[in-house]
Design a binder for these strands. Sequence first.
DNA 1: ACCTGAACACCGTTCAAGT
DNA 2: ACCTGAACACCGTTCAAGT
Lengths: 225, 225
Amino acid sequence: MATQPDAGAKAREPLSRERVLRAAVALADEGGAESLSMRRLARELGVVPMALYKHVANKDEMLDGMVDVVVGEIDPPVADIDWKPAVRRRVLSARRALLRHPWAPGVLESRTNPTPAVLAYMESMIGMFRAGGFSIDLTHHAIHAMGSRLFGFTQELFDDTADAGAAPDPEVVRALAAFPHITELMLAITHDQSSVVGPGCDDQLEFEFALDLLLDGLERLRDRA
Amino acid sequence: MATQPDAGAKAREPLSRERVLRAAVALADEGGAESLSMRRLARELGVVPMALYKHVANKDEMLDGMVDVVVGEIDPPVADIDWKPAVRRRVLSARRALLRHPWAPGVLESRTNPTPAVLAYMESMIGMFRAGGFSIDLTHHAIHAMGSRLFGFTQELFDDTADAGAAPDPEVVRALAAFPHITELMLAITHDQSSVVGPGCDDQLEFEFALDLLLDGLERLRDRA
DNA sequence: ACCTGAACACCGTTCAAGT
DNA sequence: ACCTGAACACCGTTCAAGT
């Protein structure tokens, strides 16, 4: 019994590419990218592993499809507004979409070739800069300077979001003694944000700060030219 | 014979944590992160897989160690210069170290807890901003705004570096017809850089452009406060 | 006490055998 | 022609049996 495919509620309707992708996204949403395996996904769908390969070429191509599902959730551009708020709003919409799917940044970064939805999104963003009076060259620099921020995320290399309420681990305290600047920074953050619900460091605030820093800098370069 | 551990030249001296890490870095340098498995590494060292676990707790902890090897290759800070060239030079040194180990950005991003060398590097970089007259708050914003650029890399989401010499793939040309802005951008790049050896898009130039954009923007914010 | 072979619980994907 | 069970060539790690 345990080894048999689980013929659950959703097992009846026939498999399709879309159903495979939707199930894969759901599975990754629940358990993260590392819990998404072809075998596990097949079990979830009440299907033998090989059945998936009728609808996706292989796991990599399935991940491409999943990326396009998420990128497809980004709101369309708002028309008839200036380039800066246009870019800003679209990037923040992308951020909301990606935050709904925590596995998406990692998977997006792992793709070697851009998927159709990613290309369409880039096309649209490039168009916003061009419409805002940016030269081709400066637009190119801008796209690179934005990097993954264009898609609403940044890879945080070390986790600021210390739990302000938690008792400080003596192990951690001893380790941090060797790093006075880091300690100072973390203490300042948790103190400043003590009135804020949740983590000690507001990622959304930091994201918008850097986004505006870049957009303002790019605008200045455009005006100088 | 094929199934026996390969007792090669380097098989004689006893295993140590350092030897394991050096071999792991070398293996990843050659074949990329995905070719680094505990079993393959053991074979390379002429040793049974389980022997590795005497020197590293598990694969994750080994990856931590590898990160510290690479971060340890970053040049120490240059003393007695202004904060901006100090940060700039250190970041570009970090970039050179990471470019020597193409697997390092991905592995660095996959770490959940900062390793000792990473903490020491952050401590030093934070100190540079503080010495440059940045408030704790602005320093905190700066660290976030820099993101992985502090370590000399940015995750490129789609590969600009088209081979200018290669014949255009008709498949690609047809696909790009739907994206005129992207096409325009790529044509402009390959044309402008036609005198440059190598890829159509100079990543180093783009990296330094964005780095200076950020550092200039941060300086302006510091002066305004 | 130390070391290690076999085993466990997985992978993604191929392929030949079954309907 | 379609579908799928078994098999292949791997993983990281545990554990008990051997020295």
